[in-house]
């Protein structure tokens, strides 16, 4: 077997063959570390291992799909470390809510593992907790009280949900990945509904939530209502519920669906004793649809939460 001839042949169709092996020196370390003589019999297996390491582990996905998934992955890191930090902060989360927050944290870890599995070596590695600044440069204090924590959490889950939805059509060339993203995204929506419920309980709500969350967005419904009065912490959360960078991404108060004003299309039957106002109809029409958000807007929201390390790592760039 003439190894160099093989490489030379490969070079004709892949000019980067040497680079592939050179940047994967561990392959050779592994080879030499075997501590035994390479015999003719073991050579094919070893070569197979080497070539697999050099060629076999990239995802083979298009750049657009990789970018979309890697943005989602970064958001999942952001969310995972957020809940994980909260769970490790004494006296922050009411005991009755700890199981739910644990479920959410663990689901985010599941999403991280899922996306890493899809991206293989193309996955951006976990930048660690140190890459994030959950105060958004001193504007938030999410670990100071449960109200602050849940308020920030609502912003994260709704951003995540809108981000997945915004990326969905880009994933259509790969149906399995489209399904993965959409089916992660509906779990984010479940999380959002629960975070909103916890906020209502905290606020002592007696009515299941107000349109747009009421004053200070302290009494949110389980679904996104209009633009949520710019969200729990407007200085940071307003863009979470607002429009994106193009007309394809309207704000959450949008009632135009498929070119039709669904506020007027839908028939609202008369209910004895209940007068439906136009404001109520507009709220229902907006609540019935979660809007997608473009990646540029998602990144600009997420960049609020980069620490200097996260910035250096180029998160959400």
């Amino acid at each position: 077997m003439d190894l160099f001839k093989i490489f030379s042949e490969i070079e004709k169709i892949d000019g980067e063959v040497y680079e592939r092996f050179d940047t994967r020196r561990r392959v050779f370390k592994h080879l030499t570390g075997l501590g035994k003589t390479i015999t003719a019999a073991t050579m094919p297996a070893l070569l197979s291992t080497m070539f697999n390491k050099a060629y076999g582990q990239t995802s083979g996905l298009s750049p657009e799909i990789k970018n979309t998934l890697n943005l989602a992955l970064q958001l999942e890191y952001l969310e995972f470390h957020f809940y994980d930090t909260a769970l490790n902060t004494p006296d922050l989360i009411p005991a009755s809510d700890r199981p739910a927050v644990t479920i959410i944290r663990d689901d985010e870890l599941g999403h991280i593992n899922a996306i890493k599995g899809l991206l293989s070596t193309d996955a951006i590695p976990d930048p660690t907790r140190l890459a994030f600044d959950y105060t958004a440069g001193g504007r938030l204090a999410p670990f100071s009280s449960s109200a602050e924590f849940y308020g920030t959490a609502q912003g994260f889950v709704d951003t995540g949900m809108r981000a997945y939805k915004g990326g969905a059509t880009k994933l259509m060339p790969n149906k399995d990945i489209l399904t993965a993203a959409l089916n992660i995204h509906s779990v984010e929506a479940r999380h959002s509904a629960h975070v909103r419920l916890m906020r209502r309980v905290l606020a002592g709500s007696t009515n299941g939530g107000d349109i747009a969350g009421g004053p200070g967005n302290a009494n949110p419904k389980s679904w996104i209502s209009l633009t949520e009065r710019d969200g729990p912490r407007p200085s940071v959360t307003a863009p979470v519920y607002g429009p994106g960078n193009t007309t394809d991404f309207p704000g959450e108060d949008n009632v135009q669906q498929g070119g039709k004003n669904v506020q007027t299309t839908a028939t609202y039957p008369t209910i004895p004793g209940v007068t439906l106002t136009d404001a109520m109809k507009a709220a229902a029409a907006s609540e019935a649809f979660d809007e997608p958000l473009d990646d540029g807007t998602v990144k600009s929201i997420a960049r609020n939460f980069r620490s200097p390390l996260g910035e250096r790592l180029g998160l959400f760039a």
Binding site: S186, A189, A193, S222, D290
Partner: peptide
């Protein structure tokens, strides 16, 4: 796909709330 996806997450919100009303903490 985009249109139906907008409804699908609202469906998930509905499901999560109903599950919590029935069995607290069962949203997911």
């Amino acid at each position: 796909v985009a249109l139906v996806a907008k409804m699908s997450s609202v469906e998930a919100r509905h499901a999560a709330l109903l599950r919590d009303l029935r069995t607290p903490g069962s949203f997911a």
